[in-house]
């Protein structure tokens, strides 16, 4: 069992390394992509400077906390889109019968399918995340917590995407749902939770878990709370397991399915 896990990790690292090498073939484009992503994220600071000139406290956040929120949002987005870029195209992979290649390999189909490509601009997001942490105030404890939440958050984002993408095993048009959920997660992630109310707030702690990915980390980094940290880790584990479960269920259907959808 341990050997299987070790071999899987080895091949995953190799996949990501090779994919990165492919992106680095054109060095100028590679570096421009990263730099522009950092500048892109930074441009939104103007919006917050204006907003904080109107009010000292927006949705329960001061400007430092918004900076931290941006840091967490960038880091989680960066990690998930760098390492698991293909998870965000999983619907397309399923619909076009591109899983066959991975089915004849003696490795985990889901992991293989989502780690065959990387997004260079996501490196810019990761760097920007740590720049924001630096501005917020860095300490060893902050750094470790920030990184922990970054990993948890990116796994949650990826898992949610996989879960919704797996719907493609049953319904062909479900890529629209995946797209909408992702847009919601990305866009809401940089706004303080205090501005949302009622049903939206419930959604943010359930199907669009921006609450767990972004708001809990800001709370914990502002004032350490072991319970919230554990909840965050627990949710991550549960969602990762759930994503494997649902994907594998779909995969069984894919193999035994009698539906011929562009599968020749």
């Amino acid at each position: 069992m341990l050997m299987v896990v070790k071999n899987q990790i080895r091949i995953t690292i190799l996949s990501i390394k090779y994919a990165l090498m492919r992106e680095m073939l054109n060095k100028t484009t590679f570096i421009t992509n990263i730099v522009f992503m950092i500048l892109n994220n930074a441009s939104f600071l103007i919006q917050w400077i204006v907003l904080f000139s109107l009010k000292k406290n927006i949705g329960g956040y001061n400007i430092k906390q918004v900076i931290l929120l941006w840091g967490i949002a960038s880091l989680t987005y960066g990690l998930s889109h760098f390492f698991f870029k293909k998870a965000f195209d999983l619907s397309e992979t399923i619909n076009n019968g591109k899983l066959d290649v991975f089915l004849v390999q003696p490795k985990n189909v889901l992991i293989q399918a989502i780690t065959t490509d990387v997004e260079p601009s996501a490196i810019g997001d990761m760097i920007y995340g740590y720049i924001m942490l630096f501005i917020y105030g860095i300490s060893l404890k902050n750094f470790l917590l920030f990184t922990l939440f970054g990993i948890c958050g990116s796994l949650i984002i990826t898992s949610i995407t996989i879960i919704f993408s797996s719907l493609s095993f049953w319904f062909q048009k479900s890529d629209l749902i995946v797209d909408t959920v992702n847009r919601l997660m990305v866009n809401i992630a940089t706004y303080p939770d205090g501005i949302f109310k009622g049903l939206t707030k419930i959604l943010l702690y359930t199907i669009i878990p921006v609450g767990i990915v972004n708001y809990i980390p800001v709370k914990v980094l502002t004032e350490f709370n072991i319970y919230l940290t554990l909840i965050s880790i627990l949710v991550t584990i549960l969602l990762v397991l759930l994503s494997f479960l649902i994907f594998n269920k779909g995969l069984k259907r894919y193999s035994s399915s009698n539906l011929m959808i562009a599968r020749t």
Binding site: L51, L54, K55, I58, G59, N187, I188, Y191, G194, I195, F196, K197, T200
Partner: peptide, 9 residues
């Protein structure tokens, strides 16, 4: 999102 933001502000 902007609706929520301005409603708050």
């Amino acid at each position: 999102i902007f609706l929520n933001l301005w409603q708050y502000i």
